[in-house]
Design a protein around this nucleic acid. Structure first.
Lengths: 226, 226
DNA sequence: AGTACCGATTTTGTATACAAGATGTATTTT
DNA sequence: AAAATACATCTTGTATACAAAATCGGTACT
């Protein structure tokens, strides 16, 4: 189906930042590139807006949801609570099906080669936890959280140093431990691991928001390398 | 604007149960009654679906979101956490504007004569708290919570006995106390009041889900009345 | 020079006609 | 008589043409 392909393409583009936060989405341009008429395109944009990927303003068209400082503050404030609540419910409701989906996502995450791939499969992993938690009042917030979390993680997964690569390995191992906790239906353990996982991620977000400053002495880096 | 009128009408109908949970929404019928063509109508349905009022299935049209037992269980499980989190943030972020909106809603709630009016203004009141909390990751869940909470409260506000009327008065007074807590920027107090308020409401939901059984002896009620 | 207003152009919103899919019924076949 | 299939009808999905709103550029005026 053309429409769902279009939906997925826009969604992926937003998550991997190839569609920049705040950038406008031109209806006719998208119609031409995806070979759909405006009616179904607009329905896709409405749906993306309903899920928080896009913001729609009357007579002003669609734009990729922005990611300004107040939003990031809200994220850091709210994320642990929502993630923890979802993890607890997921552990209580764990089903073989849900665990299977989780393991699939984790395998793809492990095998991913590019930062964008890692981010998207990490996204899938955490969405699957939400599905398993099966709570209609937490999932919408969780999904919005994941949109912004994934977008901010793009930098996180673009590992340059050995330390950064070690951090990613640690996150990956935490996923495995979380799967085990869900399989054991151990809510307390699932929550504990989830909060650890969040703490790791939060540091990465810190680096995203506040990159390390340029060296005061521009020659220092060169001297260090020698 | 016709479209927003249509949106509000459907929303109100869903909240006061005049559109029953699960009932199908016929596109052409709605078009004729509201004098709009199918294109904008469908956009309205998409938006209602995004906010959780309606569920859309491909090639099968729109239906009012259902309210079955698992959903009610989720609600009772999740509501205190979300309401409390929102109340805390609302108290921290309280603004004169927000307080004003809150007082307006409370006035209309107090002056309401029909159960449907009471329910809708109570809905507005709690939505305003969400707006004041200003957290994009909690509001979507809160709104979904309120949809189902309001629908279940229709019975709650249809007071027949003196006890029920006293309960409504108590809920109304709790609103006033909550406003005061927000004005004072007292998060702990706001949370405490919110949880009390929820406890009151939860009992009403209990009566909605489990109505009191018919008297075993059908003549008893008549004898009591004599 | 700066600002306000008007018109041209671009972009969004709506209606309608047509296509495709689903459902229900009647007829046929076993 | 029961089941299956083909057809008719109804409903949803898509394209296109048209209407309305907003933006932008230019001109006139302060």
């Amino acid at each position: 189906m053309k429409k769902s392909a279009l939906f997925d393409a826009l969604r992926a583009g937003i998550l991997d930042l190839s569609l920049a936060p705040g950038s406008a989405l031109d209806e006719v341009a998208l119609c031409e590139t995806y070979g759909v008429s405006r009616t179904p395109l607009r329905e896709v944009l409405q749906r993306l807006s309903g899920e928080g990927y896009v913001t729609l303003e009357a007579h002003r068209g669609a734009a990729v949801s922005s990611m300004d400082l107040p939003v990031i503050r809200s994220l850091i404030q709210t994320a642990p609570m929502i993630y923890a609540a979802v993890a607890r419910l997921a552990a209580e409701n764990a089903s073989p099906d849900g665990i299977e989906t989780l393991k699939d996502a984790q395998r793809d995450f492990r095998d991913a080669s590019t930062p964008a791939d890692m981010a998207i499969h990490n996204h899938r992993f955490h969405e699957a936890i939400g599905t398993m938690a099966d709570c209609p009042y937490l999932i919408p917030g969780l999904k919005r959280l994941l949109i912004d979390h994934t977008r901010m993680s793009q930098r996180f997964y673009d590992a340059r140093t050995a330390t950064e690569r070690a951090t990613i390995r640690k996150a990956r191992d935490q996923h495995d431990a979380m799967i085990a906790a869900f399989e054991d239906r151990a809510p307390a353990e699932a929550v504990r691991l989830t909060l650890d996982h969040w703490a790791l991620s939060r540091d990465g977000i810190g680096r995203f928001v506040m990159p390390s400053p340029l060296p005061l002495d521009p020659t220092q880096e060169i001297r260090d390398a020698v």
